[in-house]
Design a binder for these strands. Structure first.
Lengths: 210, 210
DNA sequence: GACAGCATACCAACTAGTCGGTTTAATAAC
DNA sequence: GTTATTAAACCGACTAGTTGGTATGCTGTC
């Protein structure tokens, strides 16, 4: 407990960065903004991070830990059938769309869009985080493919990227329209596509493959 | 000719803004950056635009004119079958992915992601431009639906948004990976989905509906 | 000479990062 | 148990540089 109190400022700064970046973007967010949101001072900020970019790199890693924990704990992750896990993932993403826009959008997508040409280290960190999330997702997709579409011409990984692209694009429309209705419809199209990619052998969805 | 020479600086500023914003984003782009890229001075900038935000609003309108002209002139737009026009649109978007990243990404998507919470006027301008592009696209989709899937439960408009979301999301991955391979695969998934939504009645794709 | 178009010099506000110093916490010596 | 020592955490005023925007001046055309 003593130890956790010590590093509380750092954690608060990383949490605050997540939210402020998702609201205002990277460049428009000042170090003071983050300090204010975290309730710490600028001196503390530069004690823990060597620069704004340094904080951002840490925040990207922090984000990945945070989201992986979130998805690992989500109920869809328990389904026995990998097809259900994949569709459950999409449904889960749809379910959290009722929050405010900055609360369901993706830090990494927001950051990379702004910084890809100017901050190579941030671009790389975002790429790493997104790829690793997709790699996790790809495990379930691969298992579903083995069971329901073993001869399909597409790769499981490319489906993982496709799912993420639909999500990222939907976030942009949620921002443009200040609402998540379009995002929700997009996820419903995505679900229909995935259902078609993994056709049930017959009628039952409990039937085990021989 | 005199008139066009007179306003050449303004046009150059709008063109430059398009490219610089797509590379560095809104907040990280300085007025001086745009002036330098356009080859004009700051005095000229503030002669034509009242502020950086003012220029951005004009640039969003300029972008819409520019892109609508681009798509109106593209060959896919001539196809007689609306299904071919829709698929041709996707193929066209895939075909221009061989350019550099800032040359195929979307100004409006980039802008709105950064400014949605801080610059309401820019958000509205981006929303308007994207919606209008989708409305154009929706005409072809609606016609294709009438012909190939008149009883489908989805709306033509929602397909328009879905197509754009896939594109916008693909741009994010093109930025994250500094390459368009993922984007290309995403568009191939999108095409497969659309093909499934508009099934051919039999075998021929030249058959006219009675 | 009036005016649009453009150029140069300039300013006030802001921002990332610094720096000297204070507080807090853990450990060790006594 | 008290005190000394050390190091990490923290503070907030300050600076050097940047930025959007302004003020003023110049030039050619009508």
């Amino acid at each position: 407990m003593i130890k956790s109190v010590q590093h509380e400022s750092k954690r608060k700064l990383l949490d605050a960065a997540q939210n402020v970046f998702r609201t205002k973007g990277y460049a428009a967010t000042t170090v003071d903004d983050i300090c204010e949101a975290a309730g710490v001072t600028k001196g503390s900020f530069f004690h823990h991070f060597k620069s704004k970019e340094g904080l951002t790199l840490d925040a990207a890693a922090h984000w990945s830990t945070w989201t992986e924990a979130l998805f690992a704990a989500a109920p869809f992750h328990q389904a026995a059938d990998p097809r259900e896990r994949v569709l459950g993932y999409v449904d889960f993403r749809a379910a959290i769309l009722d929050r405010a826009v900055p609360d369901f959008t993706c830090l990494l997508g927001t950051l990379v869009q702004e910084t890809y040409a100017t901050h190579p280290a941030i671009r790389a960190a975002c790429n790493k985080g997104m790829s690793s999330h997709i790699a996790n997702l790809t495990c379930d997709i691969e298992a579903a493919k083995q069971r329901y579409a073993p001869d399909a011409p597409w790769s499981a990984e490319s489906i993982g990227y496709f799912i993420q692209a639909v999500l990222q694009g939907s976030f942009i429309f949620a921002k443009a329209k200040d609402g998540s209705e379009v995002a929700r419809e997009n996820l419903s199209h995505l679900r229909r596509y995935l259902e078609g990619l993994f056709p049930h052998p017959r009628k039952s969805n409990r039937k085990e493959k021989p």
